[in-house]
């Protein structure tokens, strides 16, 4: 596709199975994310999109299969070690630390970097990326609106200087105008060199920014194509883009 296939992909999932108790949520998911891409994972509610991201980020253990990040097996690592390798997750529902201030939330994003000098300038950078956060730097995160919390959750993940950013439903529950802003930010973050794996229910927007996409259905990858082709695919149009 872009001549990068010969080098090691940034992220590879190979036949990953995961379950919640008796519920088999991922039934052999395989996907690949190359350095510099935006890849999207679309699918309906309960298809296993969030489970895929939770499994990559170590919050859930895969029952079988391999998860390789730069060729290294992530499953051999404890969940709290992944951020230092360069994997960051913007969780579903934002989950900012409500009783910490905006600045403290951002500092938590850089927690693994210790008392590193670069943190203050990264916080300043986050405030230029999201001016609203700068205006509210001393406010408790829990008192902010959903859109502001989404910005904060994104900025917090960026504070770890990730090479791979996993984003889980960043547009969920936001007003359309804010959704536009969030997707513009996603493109900007990507253009500055961060690879993104984006999980979305809003397939229209997701396929708009992504270069490639995977369609997940009941724990299986059923389609795998570049974003433009997926948008033309009648199955995708009918099931996920709301066209008949």
């Amino acid at each position: 596709m872009n001549g990068m296939q010969e080098s090691t992909p940034l992220l590879v999932l190979d036949d990953v199975h995961a379950s919640y108790g008796n519920i088999h949520a991922l039934k052999g998911v395989s996907l690949r994310v190359e350095e510099g891409e935006i890849v999207t994972l679309i699918g309906s509610n309960g298809a296993g999109k969030s489970t895929t991201l939770r499994t990559i980020s170590g919050l859930m253990r895969a029952r079988a299969g391999k998860i390789l990040f730069r060729g290294e097996d992530l499953q051999a690592r404890a969940a709290h070690e992944l951020v230092a390798l360069g994997v960051a997750l913007v969780p579903e529902g934002r989950r900012v630390f409500a009783r910490l201030s905006v600045t403290e939330n951002l500092e938590m994003g850089a927690w693994h970097r210790g008392n590193n000098q670069g943190i203050a300038s990264d916080i300043d950078y986050a405030f230029t990326l999201f001016p609203r956060l700068g205006e509210r730097r001393n406010q408790l995160a829990g008192t902010m609106s959903g859109g502001e919390q989404q910005m904060l959750a994104t900025a917090r993940a960026l504070m770890s200087r990730p090479s791979l950013l996993l984003m889980d439903e960043p547009s969920m529950g936001l007003a359309p105008v804010l959704v536009e802003t969030i997707f513009e930010t996603i493109e900007q973050i990507n253009s500055e060199g961060t690879t993104i794996l984006l999980v979305e229910q809003n397939a229209q927007m997701a396929l708009g920014v992504a270069s490639r996409g995977y369609v997940l259905q009941s724990g299986n990858i059923v389609l795998d194509d570049d974003a433009a082709s997926l948008r033309e695919n009648p199955v995708v149009q009918k099931a996920y883009l709301g066209m008949d």
Partner: peptide, 17 residues
């Protein structure tokens, strides 16, 4: 700060390292 974040959300605190 880490204690306060763990008290709010253990999973997200884990994600922060």
């Amino acid at each position: 700060k880490a204690m306060r974040s763990v008290s709010e959300d253990k999973e997200v605190a884990t994600l922060m390292g």
